[in-house]
Design a protein around this nucleic acid. Structure first.
Lengths: 146, 146
DNA sequence: CTCAGTGCAAAGGATTTGCATGCCG
DNA sequence: CGGCATGCAAATCCTTTGCACTGAG
């Protein structure tokens, strides 16, 4: 896990690469997401920092996504969710609770992760599909919804 | 892979379990999805069979989903997609092309699938999250978009 | 006859955009 | 100063719903 300061430095660099500024509200969005440790919906983000107007949140999250700073996570939920890019945090997957709709991060054992990557390489060779990344979600019930 | 006739029989049974009829338009939806071999968006489904009005398609897909006949697949796409439930087809995963937005089905080698299940069992034990199913998507570029 | 299913048109709701204003560079 | 970022409000667009009609049992 990188410190908050490092994250901001890295985010600033990425934004500059796509000729975007690292403004105060964008910084706030990054702060909220960095502090969550799980993908957040827009309503969650807005309630976390009341100074963020809805439309600016949507607009800035789109900019941040384009800059490779945040990632949009789509689930069966009605709301889209956002999280920091894995380069800024760590490679992980999601536990999707069908009871309460919450999403938690988790990481799989290193050996399995390696097996996944090997298998993905085989898929590329066999199908001609060039995989940039993979998503492994577990769908079920979290401890409090069981 | 089950034949078209078997699929209809199984679908009819599931609908009866939730006290729903297997009507002509529901049958058409199942036919379209069975013939696709990949998750389809509503526009794709509608253009495949012009006799399906939009609102009925949405409504019947919701019924079929509730009956466990179809599954809603959410991707970065703007449209939701639907596919037949895995019990009616076969356990598989998705190749998501970021170029054209298309989604293809694929299956991973049996040994990896077993490794996944073992790892999932460990996650359940360690975190208290009770996983009913898993999703493994590969995100990248398909052969024609490379 | 009764009631679920259908289809049209209108409503809903998350997300996007137009436009006037403020602020960074 | 010039142009991007902002914030409000209005528009978009996928999806859902109200309502009158049809058809199966």
């Amino acid at each position: 896990m990188t410190s908050g300061q490092e994250v901001h430095t890295a985010v600033g660099a990425r934004l500059r690469q796509v000729e975007q500024r690292y403004t105060a509200s964008r910084r706030r969005l990054v702060d909220v997401l960095a502090g969550a440790g799980r993908p957040l919906t827009i309503p969650e983000i807005l309630s976390d920092d009341a100074r963020l107007p809805q439309s600016s949140a949507y607009r800035n999250l789109a900019v941040l996504e384009q800059a490779g700073v945040v990632r949009r996570v789509q689930v069966h939920d009605e709301f889209a969710r956002y999280e920091l890019d894995e380069d800024l945090t760590e490679h992980h997957h999601h536990l999707v609770c069908v009871g309460c709709g919450r999403i938690a991060d988790y990481t799989v054992p290193r050996p399995l992760e390696r097996a996944l990557e090997k298998a993905i390489a085989r898929v590329t060779a066999a199908t001609g599909f060039d995989a940039h990344s993979h998503r492994l979600d577990l769908v079920g019930l979290c401890a409090s919804c069981r």
